[in-house]
């Protein structure tokens, strides 16, 4: 049965899947294959475009996550300490993702315009590390979200309630 609440929840969960799945795919599937199959110049040119497009997708998904999340809070009607912790983590994730794509990603985009450069390696490594941190935090947020559902509340949030 379709209701506003279901629609908002669907978009919320979909946004998590897109944000997390996209980052995981780029880090663990695409990057190693690009490194194995392409020469340095082609790899840099491909990965700069991937970072750009992935950034647009992930940041859009995170923005959707925030707005549907606030609506979800209204629909659920519960504000707990667990939710507060989750919201703080969400804020950290968005700040990190913004830094990852609008700062480090933008610098990679600018530096890699003419192909491989020495300065790119540390930036790319930094980019990957932030991506892994964001991914881990999103997984933690998903785990905390289980605690906010009615069935999981008793087992997952010991110490919070």
């Amino acid at each position: 049965m379709l209701s506003w609440r279901m629609l908002v929840l669907f978009v919320h969960v979909g946004a998590v899947i897109v944000a997390l799945g996209g980052s995981l795919f780029a880090t663990f599937a695409l990057a190693p294959i690009l490194a194995a199959e392409l020469d340095a110049r082609a790899r840099v040119l491909v990965s700069r475009r991937v970072i750009r497009r992935l950034g647009a997708i992930v940041l859009t998904a995170l923005a959707l996550l925030v707005f549907t999340g606030i609506l979800n809070v209204l629909f659920t009607g519960i504000f707990s300490a667990l939710l507060a912790v989750k919201l703080v983590l969400v804020a950290i994730v968005i700040v990190l993702a913004t830094y990852q794509y609008a700062n480090v990603g933008a610098r990679i985009w600018r530096l890699s315009a003419e192909g491989p450069r020495a300065e790119l390696a540390p930036l790319q490594s930094h980019f990957r590390r932030i991506g892994l941190t964001v991914g881990t935090l999103v997984l933690l947020i998903v785990y905390l979200s289980l605690g906010l559902t009615r069935t999981g509340a008793g087992t997952l949030v010991i110490g919070f309630r």
């Binding site: 950034g55 940041l59 923005a63 925030v66 804020a91 794509y101």
Partner: peptide, 19 residues
């Protein structure tokens, strides 16, 4: 606090537009 989250979300969309 809720508005701060919304502000972060708005900036994320704005970054997408800039990108």
């Amino acid at each position: 606090g809720f508005a701060l989250l919304a502000g972060l979300g708005l900036m994320a969309i704005a970054c997408v537009a800039a990108i």
